[in-house]
Design a protein around this nucleic acid. Structure first.
Lengths: 310, 310
DNA sequence: ATCGATCATGCATCTATTTTGCATGGTTAT
DNA sequence: ATAACCATGCAAAATAGATGCATGATCGAT
């Protein structure tokens, strides 16, 4: 049981402003400000300094936050062990995930948990990966299903989290049905490098996947349009505005005038879907069960794909 | 920063009843009861069970308390390191100690701290060793000067505490001035084994020292009277009611008709005075400074004794 | 330079949690 | 059987904490 004010400090350390901390933790900005001041008072430490129009951590503050990583992990570990040893039931369980991951993996998980543990209050939050990690730190959620990103702020070895690979989800190409290549079974990215591309807004989770895929083949595609939702992107392609990348897990549904093609060649772009939990909590029975369900679902998807590919 | 409710649980684990926990932590019994119930709710664990007219920890509860020992230690360690790294000042400092220890060591320490750190709010609590440990667990005090006891509930290796030997304080014999042996410089316990003895109440801290001293020489002295305060015991001896043991640190002042003699022989009973802190907190600058002052004072006492013995 | 936007903080108000004190019920010892 | 002890429930009170708005300070853009 770690004091709530230390958790708040950790959230602040991550997002840098009082306002964002408030939004993430569910408090008001004044409450966060008061909490952090109180924390400094009881600890007798100066943790924050004014910095421009905001505040930032002092060296002591950074030291304390960094040093509290193993403390949190140890507490999580202890709680998990006590749960395990005492055969106790957790009252609340927060899940976080992003779009298709949430739809394809989190929803079945939540449904499965509702049947195996009717008492458990399961809450699912849809949030992008970065926010999922923040929500984990803020203890708003206990498990996140996210898209792993290379060269991101949250490395595999972050002392605050433990991550488990669930699934590698390949990216397909979607092109207009009247496109010359539409009758093909597979294409290479090189063949499409001169096409007008439809992608997500720069800075978004999938945009980095997009650029990574093309830097791998040494091409710099022209980005014709930007969309936010898969649905929009698919509609753009259907209207003949260009071509796009779509994760295998994202359903095409009965979209008109759109064809989905597998990518072959040396660059087979894929997004890696991982489950992340707070470090130490992985031994918890509930987390274990959840990871098992997620893994089973991932395997089911992979198996279905193999059969489909035959 | 460990949640206050977990601290309360730890205190309960030590003293066993809600009432004692309340007395030790400063809450009311109902408050403790409510806190522990709340703790069970948020953790989703059953920690307590009814047991007769009281309650006791469940297996899960014991597991959690035992497992929280290193958690507390790690927090204390982190706090100490942050204090050290950030050159911060602690606002409050609680000291605990017992009778002569408090008078001879704690009082000078408190005085020294008041001069070197005027900002620091120092609070001294006089309490017997067992209670000092409880007060450490309850975080009411941060440092205790106590008499180490052999075969006690608090071993040197208790995961909750770290102990430092300050001083071995030998026990002297006090006898009436008109006693045949009163003119001697030194005596052995064997010579006095048939005397009527004046000691402290059975179960008290010093009673166990008394019995240990005599079991060491294989004698079973007759206990004629029991006293609580040194003053009373000295007065009894002065009245010729018997003889007694008195720690060297306890002053005889100008007591009438009482002579103090050194003990020689194979059994040289002594009480060991140690400083105890919560494990992990020993690196704190304040603790370090305090231990230094205590040690210096102890050395001063030892040196003075050596000169006196010449 | 000025205006507007962004951020943190202080303050008064209110809310919610926590604590208290007493009464109750169950349990052990005399 | 009576008395003492212990935990708990409940209503009332106290305290701590959160909110919302206003303020001041800073930064970016026009």
């Amino acid at each position: 049981m770690i004091d709530a004010r230390l958790i708040t400090l950790r959230v602040f350390a991550q997002c840098g402003t009082i306002g964002a901390t408030a939004e993430l933790t569910g408090y008001s900005p004044s409450a966060v400000s008061a909490q952090l001041r109180e924390l400094q008072r009881v600890l007798g430490m100066q943790l924050l300094t004014k910095d421009g129009r905001g505040v930032r951590l002092t060296a002591t503050g950074r030291f304390l936050v960094a040093g509290s990583d193993p403390l949190i992990a140890q507490w999580e570990s202890l709680r998990a062990a006590a749960m395990e040893a005492g055969d106790q039931v957790q009252p609340r369980f927060g899940l976080g995930g992003f779009s298709t991951a949430a739809a394809q993996l989190l929803a079945p998980l939540a449904a499965a948990l509702r049947s195996t543990r009717p008492e458990l209050e399961v809450q699912v939050l849809e949030a992008d990966p970065a926010r999922c990690f923040e929500l984990l730190v803020a203890e708003r959620i206990d498990l996140a299903v996210i898209v792993a990103m290379q060269s991101e702020t949250y490395g595999e070895d972050d002392p605050r989290f433990e991550q488990t690979v669930l699934l590698d989800d390949p990216l397909d190409v979607i092109i207009p049905a009247n496109h010359p290549l539409a009758s093909r079974e597979t294409v290479t990215l090189e063949e499409l490098s001169s096409e007008p591309w439809i992608t997500e807004a720069a800075g978004s989770t999938y945009h980095s996947l997009f650029t990574a895929a093309f830097t791998a083949v040494g091409a710099t595609p022209r980005i014709a349009h930007e969309a936010v939702e898969w649905e929009t992107q698919i509609a753009f392609v259907g209207a003949g505005l260009g071509v796009g990348l779509l994760p295998r897990l994202a359903p095409l549904r009965g979209a008109e005038n759109v064809v989905r093609l597998r990518i072959t060649g040396k660059a087979k772009p894929a997004r890696r879907i991982v489950a992340a939990v707070r470090r130490g909590s992985i031994a918890s029975p509930l987390i274990q069960e959840s990871l098992g369900i997620l893994q089973a679902n991932a395997n089911r998807i992979l198996t279905a794909r193999l059969e489909e590919d035959l």
